[in-house]
Amino acid sequence: MIAPKDLEHCVESIRHGSRSFHAASRLLPARVRNPALALYAFCRLADDAVDLQSAKGDAVLRLHDRLDKAYAGRPKDAPADRAFAAIIEEFEMPRALPEALLEGLAWDAMERRYDDLSGLRAYSARVASAVGAMMCVLMRVRDRDALARACDLGVAMQLTNIARDVGEDAREGRLYLPLDWLAEAGIDPDAFLKAPAMTPDLGRVVRRLLREVQGLYHRSEAGIAALPLGARPGIYAARFIYAGIGQQVARQGYDSITRRARTNKAQKLGWLALSILRTGATLALPRSSVIHARPVPETAFLITATADHRQVPHWSDGLNATLEILHTREEERRAALMSSAHGLR
């Protein structure tokens, strides 16, 4: 399906760019692991294409063009693009899923802030749950309940990343913590971004965010038990490794300003072993009723698009509106640069 050289390139990019997922992927069967690594390579490429560029709006527009080409069967001549095009064809990947990811990256390009937890979950649904839904597609799973739990796991993992990276994001001028939580804690967002500093009030906000993910991680386990048996250890591993990052933040007193929580090789090996044991337990226990819990509302559109992918119309209104705003901003930026250059003459 995927050309061997393209797959090798994708594996190397994940080995160096996403060590947590690379570790968890070792427990996936090859039929899932290979396309999963290719999928993550394309998602990583998309994230870096926006994050590492100064003209972020232009970067998102270029990614949308690359997505168009991949779905047309004429991918850009690059390993990750060719591999992703192969995935689209083999698995009938609903376009709503990668488009949701691009919309989340566009929100990043706009330096969007989130008024409340619902807004933050909507962002997490796009940049993380969309990937979880795509992973289900790679496993040939389109059951609504299983998809809902995969989306729970995606939101939990993204919120964990946000809790870990508060300081790193702030130094880049980015803020993801809910604004209403900051207001309740007496923290002024603009003042915080100018001089990021660890305080007890900020620690309580980070702790609150990590408490939010605990229920999501718990609910996600019911969905893992609904996946193909061979895929369960790898997904359990991802769940335990990312939850472990949150535990490390807690051990550091919820200080993600002066320190960045890291997990070591021994910890990862322990979680990999626990994942195998937990998979064995699923064979002896009845399926949990938690599998039927209502999805997080902000992820519902992903579940619908994936479960009913043959009936759902092309999902693009939200992305197109966001791209239009980005395009306008980029045009204004270029005009301002040209005007400034003309004035210097």
Results as ranks from 00 to 15, higher is better:
269 L>D: 13
280 G>S: 07
286 P>M: 06
283 L>C: 03
272 L>I: 09
300 A>S: 08
262 R>P: 05
301 F>N: 06
282 T>L: 06
285 L>W: 11
276 I>R: 14
281 A>K: 14
278 R>L: 11
268 K>F: 03
265 K>G: 10
281 A>C: 08
301 F>R: 07
295 P>F: 00
286 P>V: 07
275 S>A: 11
262 R>N: 07
277 L>Q: 08
274 L>N: 13
273 A>I: 11
283 L>Q: 03
283 L>T: 06
261 A>V: 03
288 S>N: 07
260 R>S: 01
284 A>M: 13
281 A>E: 11
290 V>F: 09
300 A>C: 08
259 R>C: 03
292 H>D: 15
291 I>A: 12
301 F>M: 07
261 A>S: 07
280 G>N: 07
300 A>W: 06
261 A>Y: 00
291 I>V: 13
281 A>Q: 14
287 R>K: 12
284 A>T: 12
278 R>E: 09
288 S>I: 00
295 P>I: 00
263 T>C: 08
264 N>Y: 07
255 D>K: 07
298 E>R: 01
261 A>T: 01
274 L>V: 12
298 E>Y: 05
258 T>A: 09
268 K>I: 15
289 S>Q: 12
257 I>F: 01
262 R>L: 08
299 T>M: 04
292 H>M: 09
270 G>F: 10
280 G>D: 04
295 P>K: 00
276 I>N: 01
300 A>E: 14
295 P>H: 01
283 L>R: 13
292 H>N: 10
301 F>P: 02
285 L>Q: 12
280 G>M: 05
272 L>A: 13
272 L>H: 06
301 F>K: 04
257 I>G: 03
296 V>D: 02
270 G>Q: 11
280 G>R: 09
266 A>V: 15
293 A>W: 11
296 V>E: 05
263 T>N: 07
282 T>Q: 06
274 L>M: 10
299 T>R: 01
255 D>V: 02
296 V>H: 01
301 F>Q: 06
255 D>F: 07
281 A>M: 14
287 R>I: 10
299 T>S: 02
266 A>K: 14
288 S>C: 09
263 T>P: 00
267 Q>Y: 14
302 L>Y: 00
260 R>W: 00
262 R>T: 08
262 R>D: 06
275 S>Y: 04
295 P>N: 03
294 R>S: 12
290 V>L: 12
291 I>Q: 05
299 T>I: 05
276 I>K: 10
302 L>R: 00
294 R>N: 13
255 D>G: 06
289 S>C: 10
269 L>V: 12
283 L>V: 04
285 L>M: 13
300 A>L: 11
283 L>S: 04
